[in-house]
Amino acid sequence: MILEALAFYVFSGILVIASLLVISARNPVHSVLYLILAFFNAAGLFVLLGAEFLAMILVIVYVGAVAVLFMFVVMMLDIGPTELQQGFLHYLPTGGLIGIILLIELLIILGGWHFSPELAKTVGAPIPPLTKETNTHAIGAVLYTRYIYLFQSAGIILLISMVGAIVLTHRRRQDVRTQKISSQVNRHPRKTVELQNVEIDKGI
């Protein structure tokens, strides 16, 4: 129990500090590294909750793929600390206003948040207790049955956005010579190599 509490405070503490450092670090690459640290600690919190499948998916998807691309882009852009601070005052009023509005909205929602007493009765238990089944099985059992339409529509949205991104950025250039591997492999040796008897001192 003590160990769990200790682990919780360590993970949450590092998570909060790392998240603050993401937005306050001067170097954007450092920001991405702090973001990765934050993801890791969030995964640690998931493990403490007994949701080890979500923890691993968080690390694989966010740290293993998304953050790599962030880092890739940030490294390539080579933004120095000075460029980031330009226009800070210019954007401050708009950004601050949006932030304040969101904060007020959150406060209104969370302030009036309460569970109705009948709720506990109406909630069916779609997921069996973790002692009976691993949470991978539990997630699979509801995701592909009860929530199949939501799952499929999420997939379709991702597919459409992917196709859209490719259509918008892909351009076919006419002036490059691409390798056509199939035609190379299909080429007959007789058409390309010719054996000739060359007379000495004559050449072809």
Partner: peptide
Amino acid sequence: DINVGILFLFAISSLGVYGVLMAGW
């Protein structure tokens, strides 16, 4: 002996890229 062992391995192996990226940068 964790329940999601193969995912753990996959996660760790996908993190290997960070050492290389950080070194290069």
